[in-house]
Computed example of a mutant assay.
Amino acid sequence: MLSVIGTIPDPDMPVFEGEARLEGDHIRVAGRSVSVNRGTAALLAAACQTVQVWGGHQVFAHLVGDTGLGQGSRELYAHLAAGISDCGNKKALVFHYLQPDADWCAKLMLRFEAKADRPLLIADAGFMYAAKMAGLAGIFDLFTPDMGELAFLADEKAPHPFYTRGFILHEGIQADELIKKAYAASNAPPYLLVKGNPDQIVHQGRIMGTVDSPSVPSMEAMGGTGDTVTGVVSALLALGVEPLRACLVAARTNRLAGEMADVNPASQIMEMVGKIPQALELALEEYSGNE
């Protein structure tokens, strides 16, 4: 089972958790309905579509409302810290949009570090920042950064994304240079799925594969496409797919879904989400030999 931990942009939503189900263009958790547009809701929708291909698997969600001020995130951090053992029966946990807080990240992650049977740990967005800020990137199994996020991981001196040094953000620096810097500074877990053009799959600092087709330029202008690829790869890992194959399949699935949906800059993310099962089946067949 996969657990997804994140926030939704509604300050009035308290902490709530339960099995997540995709119903139309909404995610339903513990009697509450959340519109799928981008962010954690888009990640959940993609994960639900992925496990549907297998059948009989669940996606669990731990959510709270937060519009970026951090109060909701702190409430969710505290809730998880008080009952983190409840996550122990999950195969994988993905931490998504949460206000970066190094102290809270350390409180959560150090409780996993000593567990012999800990789940796979995946981070994207704000929690990836928190893990790096806390010096705990190595506890995780997978980060899913875009190029801007990779630049922060590569900057060994930056305590916060706002302070990433300008030369590292310069477009002349290639992904492979940033990857080397991130691993040299111990700011990356064993696996990275670097979202970009192309998508690059990394293991221990070495680029093991790339995915560059189909090329769907309109996806760059859409909100939520990075969330969906993280949802697919997280679900695949929870289902027991080997990490390299999971990353390759997820990157390919996301691109195929965009092509199948014939997206344009005005498209909504649910148009892509609806194509994930079909795209996933094609990608799994294509990468059947990468076990």
Rank of each mutant, 00 (worst) to 15 (best):
Asp146Glu: 11
Gly166Thr: 10
Ser186Phe: 00
Gly223Trp: 01
Glu177Gln: 15
Glu259Cys: 13
Arg165Tyr: 00
Lys157Met: 09
Pro198Thr: 04
Tyr191His: 14
Gly258Cys: 10
Gly226Tyr: 08
His160Pro: 13
Pro145Gln: 04
Ala182Pro: 05
Ala235Thr: 11
Asp146Gln: 04
Ala235Met: 12
Val216Met: 08
Ser215Asn: 13
Ala158Val: 07
Pro161Gly: 06
Leu248Lys: 02
Ala158Lys: 02
Asp199Ile: 02
Arg165Gly: 06
Ala246Glu: 11
Leu256Cys: 09
Ile173Asn: 08
Ala188Cys: 10
Met147Ser: 12
Gly224Ser: 10
Glu149Met: 07
Phe143Val: 09
Ile207Val: 15
Phe152Trp: 02
Ala221Tyr: 15
Leu237Pro: 10
Met147His: 14
Val229Lys: 06
Thr230Leu: 01
Thr225Pro: 01
Leu136Arg: 09
Pro198Arg: 11
Ile179Cys: 09
Phe152Gln: 01
Ala261Cys: 12
Gly205Leu: 06
Arg206Met: 12
Phe167Ala: 05
Leu169Arg: 15
Leu193Asp: 06
Ala221Glu: 14
Asn187Val: 00
Val241Glu: 15
Asp146Ala: 03
Thr230Val: 12
Ile207Tyr: 04
Arg255Glu: 13
Pro198Glu: 07
Leu236Val: 10
Lys180Ser: 15
Val211Tyr: 02
Pro217Glu: 08
Glu220Trp: 10
Glu149Leu: 08
Gln204Lys: 12
Val194Cys: 15
Ser218Leu: 00
His203Gly: 00
Glu242Trp: 10
Ala154Val: 03
Ala185Leu: 09
Phe143Tyr: 14
Leu150Thr: 06
Met219Phe: 06
Thr230Cys: 15
Gly172Pro: 00
